[in-house]
Amino acid sequence: MADASFDNVPASDGALPEALQFRSPAPLVDIGANLTHQSFADDLDAVLARARAANVNTLILTGTDLEHARQAAALSERHAGLYATAGVHPHDASGWNASLAGHMAALYSHPGVVAVGECGLDFNRNFSTPAEQEHAFEAQLALAAEHGLPLFIHERDAGTRMREMLTSWRDDIGHAVVHCFTADKDTLYGYLDLDLHIGLTGWLCDERRGHHLRELVGDIALERLMVETDCPYLLPRNLPAKLKGRRHEPALLPWIVREIAYWRDMDEAALAEATTRTATAFFRLPA
């Protein structure tokens, strides 16, 4: 989740403009789609159909709190190719308690739940105090270790403390991905040194704040790189046509992959195949 204060995102009123009807040359996995967001309530089936038309066949729905994690798990039961994460975002860490931990633990036995998270640290907004965030994150690290699930991690302006906490847990947890990575080179290298995965979004497509990422994408090994929309947030700013409203959706993921491939100086199909292979292994999805 890019910004918990993001509200009232307009829903699409129909098909995407022709210039935005992309199709990936190979199937894609969107590892971060907030499809339980209210903006998708009225047209979710159409959104999923557009994703399939774009060859985005597998979606990991982000569970940022108990309510949305349960909704995501329920959607995974109703739609093929949908899976869920379950966790508590650092913005909501102040609400972490033993009861909530028990409810989350119950979700980890659901067959559609494939990761613990979205969880982590966000020292940019501090909607929960740093101490509350660290407490909730450490509890979720323990749950991931206990249940043998990978971690879906949020980090903003907290790279040093994140690396410290993950270093102390690295022998106990399995795979972990820092989703929607936006930080600097030193932070990236610190995560790669911890053998973490990296999720890239349309942040790369934003000339105002994502330009530095274009120089870093080639430093991420393909077996550590995954792609995501983080929709409805982070609509790419350099799309070739205007999109009514500001809502991002999974059908636009091929544009992000095309941009990453360009800045890595590699074939788009090869990048699509590699990120899907990495995501399939990371989340233990059916081949």
Rank of each mutant, 00 (worst) to 15 (best):
D171M: 14
A136E: 02
G148R: 04
G14K: 03
S128V: 03
P232R: 11
H89L: 05
A269C: 13
F152C: 05
Q133Y: 03
Y108L: 13
T275Q: 05
L66G: 13
R246F: 10
A93Y: 00
A51E: 11
A261D: 10
G174A: 07
E67D: 11
L192K: 00
Q140R: 07
D267F: 02
M226I: 02
A4Y: 12
R208Q: 15
N55Q: 11
A136P: 01
E273I: 14
A15N: 09
D7E: 12
A93G: 09
G148S: 04
R284V: 12
L149R: 03
D45I: 06
E164H: 06
C119P: 00
E134C: 14
P27Y: 09
A139R: 15
T278Q: 04
Q21R: 13
A144N: 04
F181S: 01
F6C: 05
A279R: 07
P254D: 03
A251H: 03
G202E: 10
F283E: 11
E164L: 08
V116P: 00
D195A: 14
A26D: 12
H89P: 00
E146K: 15
H197P: 02
D206P: 14
L151T: 02
H179E: 04
K244G: 15
W169K: 10
H147K: 11
H79P: 10
A80W: 09
V114S: 03
E223S: 12
P17I: 08
A274H: 00
K185E: 13
L149K: 05
A145Y: 04
E77K: 09
L196K: 00
L222T: 01
A269V: 06
H154C: 01
L151I: 14
L16G: 07
P111A: 04
H154K: 12
R224L: 03
D43S: 09
T167Y: 07
F152N: 01
Q21G: 02
Y108Q: 06
T187I: 13
G102C: 08
E138G: 06
A2W: 05
E273D: 15
G112E: 05
L121S: 00
P27D: 10
W169C: 09
